[in-house]
C-alpha cells in the first residue's frame, strides 16, 4: 500500500506534555541549584541529606518522570522524521518506550534509596 495516510488524531497531548515537562525540569534545575549553592553538596553527607528530604524526593521523582516523557516525545519525533519503514519504526518506538520506562524506574530507585 503506497497511499499516504495522515489523520491519527493525536499530537496535542504530547505537544502540551512536552511543554509542561520542560517547565517542571527548568523549575527543578533552579531548586537544585539553590540547594547546591547553599552548601547542599558541601560533602557527601550534606548531599545525601539534601536529596533524601521528603520534598526533594518528591520533586526528584517528578523531574525523572518529566525527563523521560519529554525525551519520549523528542525521540519519537526523530524516529518519525528519519525512519520510514513502519516495522522498523514501531520496533524503535517500542524499544525507546521500554528503555525510558526502565530508566525512570531505575533512577527513581537510586534517588529514593539515598
Amino acid at each position: 500500500m503506497n497511499r499516504i495516510v495522515v489523520g491519527a488524531h493525536y499530537g496535542l497531548k504530547d505537544w502540551l506534555a512536552q511543554r509542561i515537562t520542560g517547565v517542571v525540569m527548568a523549575v527543578y534545575t533552579v531548586i537544585l541549584m539553590f540547594y547546591l549553592f547553599t552548601g547542599g553538596a558541601a560533602s557527601a553527607e550534606a548531599w545525601r541529606a539534601t536529596m533524601s528530604g521528603g520534598f526533594m524526593r518528591f520533586i526528584s521523582f517528578l523531574f525523572i518522570i518529566s525527563l523521560c516523557y519529554h525525551a519520549w516525545v523528542g525521540i519519537r519525533d526523530i524516529w518519525m522524521d528519519y525512519v520510514k519503514p513502519t516495522s522498523v519504526r514501531l520496533t524503535l518506538h517500542t524499544l525507546t518506550l521500554l528503555t525510558l520506562v526502565g530508566v525512570a524506574g531505575w533512577a527513581t530507585q537510586i534517588i529514593w534509596r539515598l
Binding site: 495522515v6 488524531h9 499530537g11
Partner: peptide
C-alpha cells in the same frame, strides 16, 4: 481542528 490534530499535519 480535527483535521489538523495530527502528529504530522500540524505538530
Amino acid at each position: 481542528l480535527d483535521n489538523l490534530e495530527d502528529p504530522y499535519r500540524l505538530f
